[in-house]
Design a protein around this nucleic acid. Structure first.
Lengths: 385, 385
DNA sequence: GGGGGCGATGTAAGCGCTTACAACATGCAG
DNA sequence: CTGCATGTTGTAAGCGCTTACATCGCCCCC
């Protein structure tokens, strides 16, 4: 028969099947019978046990070494079928749940990626997160989510996050990247999504994935101009988020291409209430325009609805276009002309890159740009189907 | 002076500040000057170092023991200001990022909660997740997200998740709870959100938080009946999700309260395309109704829009009401009458309960029910403002 | 029949951190 | 000058896993 199962060496005597019986060395000749009752002893049912089964208890129960238990559970080394069954039974009867932290420590990988986004309103972040999680899961990685908005100590939170993941993806629109890069000084792979390259110390381990903005914004703006509009306003504050400023750049470029000079952006935050306020400024005559190019759909929708409720005709009196193609943009009348971004793919790509980086790949020197698509509906002046 | 810093006992000689210089014991009398260059030696800039600084390297650099480093970093034990500074400097210059797994192993807590939801479409899941993450973060816990939809081995994924968290919150609408409860047999606290109590082995450690459904559904249905409608249809499949079936129960109850008998539910999945199909069945005369009570807003919106596009008047010809109060429901004309749930609070509560349970609290015997609110707009027949 | 090869299993050394306890220094009272 | 409280730091024993390496049979072939 196999070697008698032995206690862990030099370890404080952990209570096994017989908690209170002090049997120092003699127990080696009296192995516990394999058929002890299935319920964990000394555990009140219905209450979470203070401490669960470990690989040691499983090994003891199965009459094998912890190495064998590990091998069965990892499923990578060859174990005889009989042994495998014994182990599996022990696992089952002890309700063994391995301790991930111990594995992580041993394999020296967290097997988790962090994702930092400002919040989770609207479909953009959700799509991104879904893409990220899906791909990460396929790669066998967990995802730890960190919402930056509302957190008082974001750098601290990110630092803490860095403690438990192998890599971090962060949305560029949060003003995080510089902070982030500083927080982990090139210690972990970082990919910035839809941001601009931060020139900071430690930024060398940072890479970028984004959706194309400038060109499609130019295209969209050109389309509006082609409808014969001439007094376009860009609504949204380009400053904080790199993608928004790129869109404004496209707006400007489209004007420049036909010898026009674009108006200054109407700098407002991306909230519905702000859209309403902008609409009111137009209604009052404070702002003059025959077309509005908005930084995102929320803004565009709230403006359009307010304008319509006040009796204005969209697109007759004024055209309104947005960005993101949220669900509502399909439902309003007229349908909102907007730009669809491959947000899901962005998430997938971020997870993908992180994985490669953790695998040892070098950071991509240039940003990866994914193409976007202008979605024409009625709000720009196109005929409604 | 303090005791000379010493290497970790019986450890494979790890390269410290002087990687290639073999100075076995003599180094004790020659501590590294505190002003060595800040860049990590033997690390190519721009490439993630194979292995980072550890608490040992920090301790060595600062000329203290690892215990002291730990104390400084935890900030709980008294350390002299001078020592604290030395340690902090060492941390800084070595770009030390602690290994979360090692801490978790030592403190025997993951300091993380898992959240299992089917997917992340629409505002419901996002709100929930935000509430959960926010509260979890306040409690010092990370959140690991698991999206069940599209995963081929959900029980496996949940089992894996259980490996790395102290507790799990799971959305009841995923048909997970039984599986889940089995997967971790009462090993970890579980709270089911918006689900029904699973009577499964190990279910004793499961508790429930949910939004009230039956009463508000009854209220909403009664309101529609009060508008003089008599042929109401409930749209959505009550079977898979407990909250949906509760809503149908309310629908039935409202009928029963006035001696009516409710029609069988129109069992369709919760997709926009299905809503369109339902609308078509109404337009073709296959389905007859003067009011539609839909299981959620997506369904209600797609039906209403399709009906309107086909020339029907909502609510004139037919009333349509939904559930969830998504953003679009505010934007369509007429506004969608619906029910607002305290989704954010549900997430907060779930995190809260998990924390208490991990702290040793007993599971709540009865489900916690949060109140909902009927939001009246135009689609039910109420006058539009 | 002995040795080599091979498959199955055990042994033990870490992984990097926390923390109980011990040790030491210092100051002050007796 | 001795002893004790107090504040600070070090020592070392784990936490529960993975895995390189050693060991042990066993079968097969010469």
């Amino acid at each position: 028969m196999a070697t008698t199962p032995r206690q862990r060496p030099q370890r404080t005597d952990r209570p096994s099947a017989a908690p209170t019986t002090p049997s120092p060395e003699s127990s080696a000749s009296a192995p516990t019978p394999a058929t002890t009752p299935a319920t964990t002893p000394a555990t009140t049912p219905g209450v979470t046990p203070a401490v669960g089964a470990t690989i040691y208890s499983v090994a003891e129960r199965a009459g094998v070494s912890i190495a064998t238990v590990s091998r069965v559970l990892q499923g990578r080394a060859v174990v005889s079928e009989a042994t495998r069954q014994k182990v599996l039974e022990a696992v089952e009867s002890l309700h063994y749940v391995p301790l991930g932290a111990a594995r992580s420590l041993a394999v020296r990988h967290h097997e988790a990626y962090g994702l930092v986004i400002p919040e989770l309103t609207g479909p953009y972040y959700s799509e991104l997160l879904m893409g990220f999680e899906t791909r990460a899961a396929e790669l066998g990685q967990s995802v730890i989510l960190l919402l930056a908005n509302g957190k008082s100590d974001v750098p601290g939170a990110v630092g803490h996050l860095a403690t438990r993941v192998d890599g971090i993806a962060v949305l560029g629109s949060a003003a995080l990247p510089p902070t982030l890069a500083r927080a982990l000084r090139g210690r972990k792979p970082v990919v910035v999504i839809a941001g601009s390259s931060p020139h900071v110390p430690g930024g060398d381990s940072v890479e970028l994935v984004a959706a194309e903005n400038v060109h499609s914004a130019e295209q969209l703006t050109a389309h509006v101009l082609d409808h014969g509009r001439s007094r376009l306003l860009y609504v949204g504050d380009p400053d904080p988020a790199p993608d928004i400023s790129e869109r404004y750049a496209g707006f400007v470029a489209a004007h420049a291409a036909r010898g026009l000079v674009a108006a200054e952006p109407v700098r407002v935050p991306f909230r519905e209430s702000e859209g309403v306020a902008v609409a009111d400024r137009i209604l009052s005559g404070e702002l003059e325009a025959d077309a509005l190019v908005c930084a995102n759909d929320e803004l565009a929708l709230s403006i359009m609805t307010r304008l319509q409720d006040a009796g204005r005709d969209v697109p007759g009196d004024i055209a309104v276009v947005g960005w993101d193609d949220v669900m509502t943009s399909r439902y309003v009348r007229p349908g909102m002309t907007t730009v669809r971004q491959p947000v899901h793919e962005l998430g997938v790509l971020a997870a993908e890159r992180l994985h490669q980086r953790v695998d040892g790949a070098a950071p991509l020197p240039a940003p990866v740009l994914l193409p976007t698509e202008v979605v024409l509906r009625g709000s720009c002046g196109c005929p409604t189907p």
